[in-house]
Design a protein around this nucleic acid. Structure first.
Lengths: 203, 203
DNA sequence: GCATGACTTGGTCATCTGGCCAAGATCGAC
DNA sequence: GTCGATCTTGGCCAGATGACCAAGTCATGC
């Protein structure tokens, strides 16, 4: 697949960068962060080592570009296709959707986690925490919407409930990543949805 | 402090190992996993580099020993000093205690996380997942105890509630580690306790 | 005391890493 | 077609790292 019709030599630097970023993702999937060396990337991309320094000035620049590319547009799917007037049910569906995102491609989650970690150390890169804020806002909006439709009110500010939902969901997902126990994760999602839903009471 | 009364030369290998493990922890705290080199450890311990290979056969052996030593006996404090017949209050106290453990020494949590991560890659080391099971059993016991004292029953098997509590708490704690927002974390703990407590109903 | 084995020392080695560069090849504008 | 800019190539470098060892030192049981 690296020998497509336009895969020859003398391609513009932007395409080279994209090519190397693709290769970097593959390397991350296969060998993890420790195996992400400049040589591993260029070898994987099938280009000479020297290309690397020409395309990116340094390894840090690659990591920065990688974080930018991989982490953008990750927030969307929070309750996208959830259809229910029942708060606990809607919650359960939304939480399950979050779990399924990771279950569908656990390795992506793994290397993204590593990527964010190394990016935090590097002072040059933004930890992209604003993504987290977008998440929070999205969840908040959903919670407010559901409670409104169901004619209930939260016993605490929606923002606080949203924070809890976000954190707790993350915890459940991470637990699955560690033990890969589907039943346990689904049960936790179910109980979490019920528990959180109980924070809403008739208006 | 490395020149104590018994800090001279010709100490038994076990003491050398302990000495190097101490130094390794300090290195981890200061420079993280990336800075944990055999030389950094021996320099920190104030011993010649060659000692390392004598004491441990390899760097992997040090990491293994480090995981063993640092990760043992971490489970205890789940609801140790909790005193309340009120389920939500007891829960809140226990959850807060968990949060406080990390808040008291965030760097320990940080390097332990890194350590576990690298240990998982190394096929030779046990991920020490049985610790997680001890946690689970401990939480389960506490939940059962509290509900019994309060004269309520859980709407789901205690094991499932325990799993949720464990996962969700972990999520809240990790969120704090990322944003260091005390108010948010405490609010989440509070809400989580209330939410989970609502999974218990009068017998 | 003294021999044996445990411990120490400081150096060396092969390997790998990120970074760099100078010469050549190629493309595109004119 | 020519010429300058862009891109390619393969090799090189200094530094760091984990591993290793041979010779020396010391403690201790006999």
């Amino acid at each position: 697949m690296s020998t497509g019709p336009t895969a020859g030599t003398h391609r513009p630097a932007d395409e080279r960068r994209a090519q190397l970023l693709d290769a970097a993702v593959e390397v991350l999937r296969e060998r993890g962060l420790a195996g992400l060396t400049t040589r591993a990337v260029t070898t994987r991309a099938g280009v000479p080592h020297g290309i690397f320094h020409y395309a990116f000035g340094s390894k840090a620049a690659l990591v920065r570009a990688l974080v930018d590319r991989e982490l953008s547009g990750a927030a969307a799917a929070w309750g996208a296709a959830v259809e229910s007037d029942d708060v606990p049910t809607a919650l359960r569906q939304a939480l399950l959707a979050q779990l399924d995102i990771v279950r569908a491609d656990p390795e992506r989650d793994a290397y993204l986690t590593e990527l964010v970690r190394v990016a935090q150390d590097d002072a040059g890169t933004r930890p992209a925490l604003w993504e987290q804020d977008r998440y929070r806002a999205e969840v908040e909006h959903r919670l407010a919407s559901w409670s409104h439709d169901a004619g209930v009110v939260w016993v605490a500010p929606v923002a606080e409930v949203a924070s809890l939902v976000l954190s707790a969901t993350d915890g459940v997902v991470r637990a699955w990543v560690v033990d890969r126990d589907d039943r346990r994760a689904e049960t936790s999602v179910d109980l979490l949805a019920r528990a959180v839903a109980s924070l809403a009471r008739p208006a």
